[in-house]
Design a protein around this nucleic acid. Structure first.
Lengths: 344, 344
DNA sequence: GATTCGCAGTAAAATGTTTTACTGGAACGG
DNA sequence: CCGTTCCAGTAAAACATTTTACTGCGAATC
């Protein structure tokens, strides 16, 4: 009971080789170690139930083998399916590669103290994922064209040169437009996201409106209302749209939550979603399939966005190559359910 | 441009003192350092924009200044208000004390490989919070009466001797019973949680039934149905209860989600929750106040449970005193809203 | 027979802290 | 004037690894 915990020196002594040899074996860069020696060392590791210290390991090469997920301070950010799926995707991929995940909340004073930088500078973390970024997060400027490993997940920016991985929102807008056109709709409305601060939802809107125009359907500005991505605001938005055009036949909502708000609004006016008015959502969150009627929507595989973000981040860290920024688009897919129907 | 990053040695050289002095100043155990020296060192730190490396700091005393949150692998565990609030509470308190939070998911193979132990053994983490624990998590036995810093958040176990911080579920059961009695109800039912695997919800049920009995109201076994904490299963449970006793006047649900399920069930049978049948929930999640009718419920401050868990954990780590287990109960509070009414 | 090469492994430096035990000198009481 | 105490700080060990440059040796090559 001399020692609490075996270290690499103990293993070396036990198996009669040098530290270096043990280290090489642990790190699997061991072409040059012969099989018998290798086996002896592995036995010693087993016997002493040795685990290399992550702390000490990170020290020489300044690697923590840890990644941070930074989320904005929202009302229960951790209780949102959207963040939940992104985080799961990142986690899964990171865990598979032996990386740990650190959780960080970008509160006001967190940003003011530049703690995200500390994280990188004190070697706590090898890279940072930023979820839920908007154009109001001015501190991102610090990463503009910098070689600091920060990756924006599911949003992107034109004013700053950053790494990002995003769903193909333009394709989503086009898919939604094509679907409604195919069903014969012409009196169409759109409940958008916060277009003033999020580029992706602007792209969604632009692509949707643009594609409708290509098909000769004009969507006037007044039939586009912003909904802040929440059920309640979307309900109000939908009320407003129905007042402006009581005969509209289809609404494209920038996310599924807002589509549920539209359902509520319609019902309150004794209209049936999917029959009287076609509703198409965006995201395909789990409740979309379970809603009544089951929702037609554009599936955005957020889990995959998270996973791909993580793969890209790891590549970034390994290679340290700064030739160009990461700029990956994840494909989307229209899911036809019962909330859209041919025009009568 | 000789160096990338200043270290403590650079600071020492710059300010003409020894490493030790700098270290003492950084760690604020610096009674013995004179003010002028202190100032000189702080200036040097500023000038070189020096940040101590967390990795190197942890090495000598085997402290990572990091805590892990372990959650079970559930359908979108990260997208649940319950976990969200617990995590927020833990995070807040940890951040205030300079601790980082690591996220870990207890998947099947994660448990099999005992990675939670690795976490402690390789010094990645100074302590582990386990959320969403049930009696099916047999691996907890490993921490039974052990001095490993694992803390069970918002559940507890009688079969294993572990640290825990829990809401006072017994008090919640009593409060709910008292409230219904006060309103004159006698035909009462209960939709319970997964009583087979979670002790806290058994306590809730027992306290509720016990208190009713004290007031002379007998709740038969058949009027208690389990609901697995989900909206859908609770709806079915409620259907069943209404079939068994169409004249029941009140239902106590073991959480708010299930109370919402009960709302649905009642409405489907053209009964008005809060008028025809009083419903009382448990948790006071945000939607409870927003539901229709606003829900009477027992508030469980999960944020506070998380925060207190973290405080206890830090105490555990600091003192390393194993005289007794942590066993803290967080008080609950009845919130009267419109889903309960005096019997007619 | 000298030179080169590859093999299997090692010595030692480097990574950046904390902490314990020490030191030289000044003040101070007897 | 001597011993003690205090002050302000320091030297050096410890923490656990990775990595670079090296070494001895036998085999192949010229």
């Amino acid at each position: 009971m001399a020692k609490q915990r075996a270290n690499i020196r103990d293993v070396a002594k036990e198996s009669g080789v040098s530290l270096t040899t043990v280290s090489l074996i642990i790190n699997k860069n061991d072409q040059r170690i012969s099989e018998p020696t290798r086996q002896r060392v592995l036995d010693a590791i087993e016997k002493l139930s040795y685990t290399p210290s992550r702390l000490a390991r990170g020290l020489p090469n300044r690697r923590a083998n840890t990644l941070a997920i930074l989320v904005p301070q929202l009302q229960n950010a951790f209780a949102d399916v959207y963040f939940g799926e992104l985080i799961s995707g990142i986690y899964e991929e990171a865990a598979a590669r032996g990386f740990r995940i650190l959780l960080e909340v970008a509160r006001r004073d967190y940003i003011k103290r530049r703690e995200y930088m500390q994280l990188l500078e004190d070697c706590s973390v090898d890279g940072i994922f930023f979820l839920g970024a908007t154009e109001e997060h001015k501190f991102l400027k610090e990463f503009d064209a910098s070689d600091r490993p920060l990756l924006v997940v599911n949003n992107h920016f034109s004013q700053w040169d950053l790494h990002h991985v995003v769903c193909d929102y333009a394709a989503a807008g086009r898919d939604a437009a094509d679907h409604l056109i195919e069903l014969g709709h012409t009196r169409i409305a759109h409940i958008s996201g916060p277009n003033d601060v999020v580029l992706t939802t602007r792209e969604l809107t632009d692509a949707f409106v643009g594609r409708l125009a290509e098909h000769g359907v004009r969507l006037s500005k007044s039939m586009i209302v912003g909904g802040e991505f929440q059920v309640e605001t979307a309900k109000l938005a939908c009320d407003e749209l129905l007042e402006r055009d009581p005969d509209l036949t289809a609404i494209f909502c920038a996310n599924d939550k807002m589509a549920l708000g539209a359902y509520q609004s319609l019902r309150a006016q004794s209209k049936q979603p999917g029959k009287d008015v076609s509703i198409i959502g965006c995201d395909d969150i789990p409740v979309a399939a379970l809603s009544d009627p089951p929702m037609t929507t554009v599936r955005m595989n957020f889990f995959e966005v998270g996973a791909e973000s993580c793969r890209q981040m790891l590549k970034l860290i390994e290679t340290k190559s700064m030739d160009g920024r990461i700029n990956k688009r994840i494909p989307v897919e229209l899911v036809r359910r019962a909330s859209t129907a041919p025009i009568r």
